[in-house]
Design a protein around this nucleic acid. Sequence first.
DNA 1: GACCAGGCACATC
DNA 2: GATGTGCATGGT
Length: 227
Amino acid sequence: MGMPQTATGHRLLSLYRHLFRHFGPQRWWPARSRFEVIIGAILTQNTAWTNVERAIAAMRGAQLLNPRKIDAVPQEQLARLIRPAGYYNMKAERLKHFTRFLLTRYGGSVQRMFRGKRPGLREELLEISGIGEETADSILLYAGGRPIFIVDAYTRRVLERHGLIATNIPYGEIQRLFMTHLPTDPALFNEYHALLVAVGKTYCRRTPRCDDCPLLYDLPRGSPLLP
DNA sequence: GACCAGGCACATC
DNA sequence: GATGTGCATGGT
């Protein structure tokens, strides 16, 4: 119980330890409230976090970091505020979609949304236009503390570059790889995902700096975890 | 000036 | 089910 039983589990934990040794704790998610985590999760879709910080700061300055205010503000005004985050028209609409969902179904309370087990919550979030698998899982893990593993572009790329998975493996399969072979631990999933982003940002971009990658020589080689 | 960033919905085959 | 496209800012 708690420890991995499989060779795959040991290799995934080995990768985790190497990442943690090189990058240290990442202290995700950077936000002042659970609601702000969700706002950030939507705003950071395919966008650099520094740009999201400006957008959130602008929303804070306008006192818009609560669901009722977002629901009430004209979408065009919201779009102007979050302009630095890019895709501002779409994202303004997505913020309104989520807050309307939160208001109508949970009285505007993130606490209430996460109260109890709520096994269907992921499906509820996926029904909201503008929330896909990664955003839903980010909300569940980083706002709700649920033990769910997030797969993003960096996760995919780091694993692919190190020969651990083939290309074009579906989201759910990569997620299942981590979740079936690692202990069900929100703190582990939290840190692991953040560390994958850290190494991805530094060494595993689309134009890589693989020669400097700390994993390249340290990480034991082996057969792929997924074909 | 090109390329990139913590996706997603939608169209089309 | 796979593949292609629009959405947009700011940093390198």
